[in-house]
């Protein structure tokens, strides 16, 4: 176990090192801090002197070590646009993204488990087939398109007049297919509650919660089909194992077998895969936040790209890289802890 622990953690450090090298290469290749600092009128000699002073003429290894040393002390430079430390900017935008991810995760957990379990217990029921069909279609719809359709339906509203409106049933169908709209689809709303530090929360006011609904549903929509399929597949595999057949033979009730015995062993792989997926959700937050102008990390990153705000891009890469590495390592370690059959040499069984 100790060897496994050491190996995983050293691998995490190695990955973080590679990320920092890439981030440094981007900073070194794209950003010439002199251009940002001085105007055209400064002579070449003065530029050279300034370069020396800033250490830009040092060997590349020395420059990298300085970059890494600063990064370890929590200094990733100043953002050109916000003119304050990049980590401060990131800390301001992080809570919005976290609330989005938390909301979406809740939707995923509370919908995927019951649907996945149901589809596994009754694979032939029409409702299961309906859910599986929906999830195949769901995988094929990009997250930004789901978001746009949600905006059209629930924010702008749709008026349908396909049916004759002078008859009672026609009017009823028209009303049935029309939507009111009115859901907020832009930003987080003005009614935020200050929690602590830079955390302004929208979780405690009705306005803040209303603004969360559409972005969270969009973000959840991309992961939900994956989880439903995963839970169904794992559950069906577990249901065919010997101990379940033994429990059936003993005459235990179906509910007890399904929810106590089978579900426990289904959730183990689901939790580990889920841990990794939550890290991957960060990529999808960029798309969701762009559609809804949600002032989180993803939108900040895209704006940094259009503004060529190199330090902020680099800082985002480092922070997101750290989040990925930490979640993956923790998930791996937890998996190693709860599943003793995992090969301790590090090769996945």
């Amino acid at each position: 176990m100790l060897a496994f622990l050491v190996q995983r953690i050293s691998q995490a450090f190695l990955v973080m090192f590679v990320i920092s090298v890439i981030a440094f290469a981007i900073q070194d290749g794209l950003g010439d801090p002199l251009q940002q600092m001085v105007g055209m009128s400064v002579s070449e000699e003065e530029r050279e002197a300034l370069r020396d002073e800033l250490g830009l003429n040092d060997p590349i290894v020395v420059q990298y070590l300085r970059f890494a040393g600063n990064a370890l002390q929590g200094d990733l430079g100043n953002s050109y646009f916000y003119s304050k430390p990049t980590l401060e900017v990131i800390a301001e935008h992080l809570p919005a993204t976290l609330e989005l991810v938390i909301g979406a995760s809740l939707i995923i957990v509370f919908l995927s488990v019951p649907i996945g379990v149901y589809a596994a217990i009754r694979p032939q029921a029409w409702l299961s087939k309906f859910f599986m069909g929906i999830s195949t279609v769901g995988i094929s719809i990009p997250v930004f398109l789901t978001a746009i359709v949600l905006i059209q339906l629930f924010s702008i509203g749709v008026t349908v007049n396909w049916f004759p409106s002078d008859t009672g049933w026609g009017q009823w169908f028209n009303d049935f297919f029309s939507t009111d709209g009115g859901m907020p689809s832009y930003g987080r709303g003005g009614d935020l509650v200050h929690l602590f530090g830079t955390w302004e929360s929208g979780l405690f006011t009705s306005e803040g919660l209303a603004h969360l609904v559409l972005p969270c549903v969009s973000l959840a929509s991309i992961m939900l089909p994956l989880f439903i399929r995963l839970i169904r597949a794992e559950m069906m595999e577990v249901l065919q194992s010997d101990y379940i057949r033994y429990a059936r033979a003993k005459g235990l009730s179906a509910g007890r077998i399904n929810f106590l015995h089978a579900l426990k062993n289904t959730m183990l792989p689901v939790i580990t895969v889920g841990g990794v997926q939550i890290g991957i959700m960060v990529a999808y937050t960029i798309l969701t936040e762009t559609v809804f102008q949600w002032p989180g990390l993803g939108l900040m990153f895209l704006e940094a790209i259009t503004r060529s705000d190199i330090p902020l891009i680099v800082a985002y890469l480092m922070v997101v890289g750290l989040i990925f590495v930490v979640t993956n390592t923790v998930v791996d370690l937890v998996y190693g802890l709860v599943n003793p059959t995992v090969k301790l040499t590090g090769k996945k069984a």
Binding site: I26, L30, V276, I280, V282, A283, F301, I305, V320, G321
Partner: peptide
């Protein structure tokens, strides 16, 4: 583990900036 979309976005961003 970084998700292919994330890698694509980052590479795309770097290319666009350069």
């Amino acid at each position: 583990s970084f998700s292919t979309l994330m890698v694509a976005i980052i590479v795309g961003a770097v290319f666009k900036a350069s």
